[in-house]
Simulated scan of single mutants.
Amino acid sequence: MSTKFPDKAADPSAPAAIPPRERIVSSAADLFRKFGIRGIGVDAIAEAAQTNKMTLYRKFGSKDELLCATLRQVTQRAGAIWDELEREFSGDAAAQLKRWVEFQVDRLEQEPGGCDLANAAVELRDSDHPAHAVVQEFKNSQRNRLAAVCEAAGSSNPELLADTLSLLLEGARVSVQTSGPEGSSRRFKESCEATIAAFSSR
């Protein structure tokens, strides 16, 4: 009599083990990043997610709705930095601000393709596209969080400092794409530190 071994457990990291919605969002985000929003269709997204168009449209009513879902996923990951800063430097806003700069330096090196949100906003010229609302809401919330940290750190003008740092970051992201890592973006950290010092009230 032969011994029957139990079936091998499914690999939780295998695509089929991941819920369809998550697979679709993840695949769409990767493809949008590689080929652009207009350069990829739902057929390719469904294939990459190992599903079909019927399932895709059942989970997302349209490609635009799917795009917004991918952008919200980006905002959730990017927005988590504030919780990390608070945990790591609780009660020390100056240290949080310094680490925020270092974090952005790391992102510039790790994401030479730029910010997914900004790239989407540039590609989608129709100002009424729903993705613009997602981008604007996130960018504004990030700027406001930054302003709050600047104020807690004792800045003489936290609102202006937050706007200046935000502009430096957006400019550095563009510089990486247009001039490479050895362009003006290499001075991002130095520029931020000089700006923070200039706005110090201490």
Rank of each mutant, 00 (worst) to 15 (best):
D7G: 10
A10R: 13
P12C: 13
P12G: 12
A14T: 09
A17W: 07
P20T: 02
R21Y: 05
R21F: 04
R23G: 02
V25L: 04
S26H: 07
A28I: 01
A28V: 04
D30T: 13
L31D: 01
F32H: 06
R33T: 15
G36T: 11
G39V: 07
I40D: 05
V42I: 15
I45S: 00
E47I: 08
A48Q: 15
M54H: 11
M54S: 15
T55M: 12
R58W: 06
R58F: 09
E65K: 14
L66K: 04
C68E: 03
T70Y: 02
L71K: 00
L71R: 01
R72D: 11
R72S: 06
V74T: 07
T75R: 00
A78I: 01
A80K: 02
E84T: 14
R87K: 14
R87G: 11
S90H: 11
S90K: 08
A93V: 08
A95I: 05
Q96M: 13
R99T: 09
R99N: 06
F103G: 09
Q104Y: 10
L108G: 09
Q110C: 07
E111Y: 11
G113P: 04
G113C: 09
C115M: 07
A120N: 01
E123G: 08
E123I: 06
R125A: 13
D126E: 14
S127T: 11
S127Q: 12
H132P: 03
H132S: 05
A133N: 08
F138W: 08
N144Y: 07
N144E: 15
N144D: 15
N144V: 00
R145C: 00
A147P: 02
A148H: 05
C150G: 01
E151W: 02
E151D: 15
A152C: 10
S156L: 11
N157W: 06
E159R: 11
E159G: 09
A162E: 03
L165H: 02
L169A: 12
E170I: 09
S175G: 08
S175K: 04
Q177E: 14
G180E: 12
G180S: 12
S185G: 05
R186M: 08
F188M: 03
E190A: 10
C192A: 11
E193A: 03
A194S: 13
T195P: 02
A197G: 04
A198E: 07
F199E: 03
S200C: 11
S200R: 13
